[in-house]
């Protein structure tokens, strides 16, 4: 019975993890309706009406300088100011999202701000799309169907007990040191039982344990996903915030923002992330203040020469 209860949680976590693995650029609407500074509120009204949208960014040379929402439009309408320039009514300081951010950051942004849409910009800060909750819902449904299809296919072919194929997502809560480490222990056992060399098992265990401790000690909560096949172990950690101001600094040995309590638990020496990087073959980190942090660590299970020979 308890297994039945656990099952939906695990699959929903896996879907979340998949969605978190997406980039904003893969989910946003690329066809954006924008206006320039010299357009009127009437122009915005027409665009909104014809395209059934609720927010129109104002751009100047592709850069977002403001956004006019349904709310602004109603205010202008009330004041009989529909022929006014958009600059008079738009919201000037716009929260934008970068297109290569993980989707999890966007989800945090929707939680943090009350906006219904976020203009999306590229590295040059040019408007490339717009992200609404509807985009996220679509992505979620798409990933859910894909996941279901995969699960159905998996059911048709029973797994070999010796197989190294494994994927699981663990949820971790803030300051829950008691459970921080369970995932690592489980993964360690799984690899050990399948005869993976102890040195590799140790590297995987260290990376995942450091990430678990990071999630419970520094984030407001998040998840740790494992995707294992015979070639490699992929560990990905996503949290909901608070985000790291300077990831470069966070990767410097000895740099730490840990409080006394975390230190009393034997951690917080500023060696967690550098240590994950040390034991990983591939390492990537992405973070934004207020939105969260994503870390991905890959540990190859086969020497590279062997891979090349295949």
């Amino acid at each position: 019975m308890s297994e039945e209860h656990k099952q939906p949680l695990q699959s929903s976590l896996r879907v979340q993890e998949l969605v978190y693995g997406l980039r904003i650029s893969e989910v946003m609407t690329s066809k954006v309706f924008a206006v320039s500074r010299n357009c009127t509120m009437r122009d915005v009204q027409t665009i909104m009406k014809n395209n059934s949208i609720t927010g129109v960014p104002v751009v100047d040379n592709k850069r977002v300088v403001g956004i006019v929402t349904m709310n602004d439009l109603m205010n202008a309408l009330e004041q009989g100011a529909m022929e006014h320039n958009v600059t008079k009514w738009m919201v000037g300081e716009v929260q934008t999202l970068a297109e290569d951010m993980p989707l999890s950051f966007a989800i945090s942004a929707f939680g943090k701000f009350s906006f219904r849409q976020f203009p999306v910009v590229n590295k040059k800060n040019e408007l490339t799309g717009i992200l609404t909750f509807r985009n996220i819902n679509h992505a979620l449904i798409r990933e859910l169907s894909r996941q279901l299809r995969e699960m159905e296919q998996k059911n048709e072919q029973p797994e070999e007990p010796e197989s190294l194929k494994f994927s699981k997502v663990y949820q971790l809560n803030r300051y829950d040191f008691e459970n921080g480490g369970k995932a690592s222990s489980e993964i360690k056992k799984f690899l050990k039982e399948r005869g993976v060399p102890p040195k590799l098992v140790r590297r995987v265990a260290v990376a995942s344990y450091e990430l678990e401790i990071n999630l419970v000690a520094h984030s407001i909560g998040g998840m740790l996903g494992f995707d294992i096949n015979e070639n490699r172990v992929k560990i990905s950690s996503h949290d909901r915030g608070p985000g790291i101001a300077d990831t470069e600094k966070a990767l410097t040995q000895g740099y730490s923002t840990a409080n006394e309590w975390i230190r009393s638990q034997g951690f917080g020496a500023g060696m967690g992330l550098p240590n994950v990087k040390r034991v990983s073959d591939e390492f990537a980190i992405e973070s934004a203040l207020g939105m969260g942090t994503m870390v991905q660590a890959i540990i190859n299970l086969k020497p590279e020469t062997e891979n090349e020979n295949k």
Partner: peptide, 8 residues
Amino acid sequence: DLMSDVLM
């Protein structure tokens, strides 16, 4: 007593 060191 520093587990971070142990893990290194």
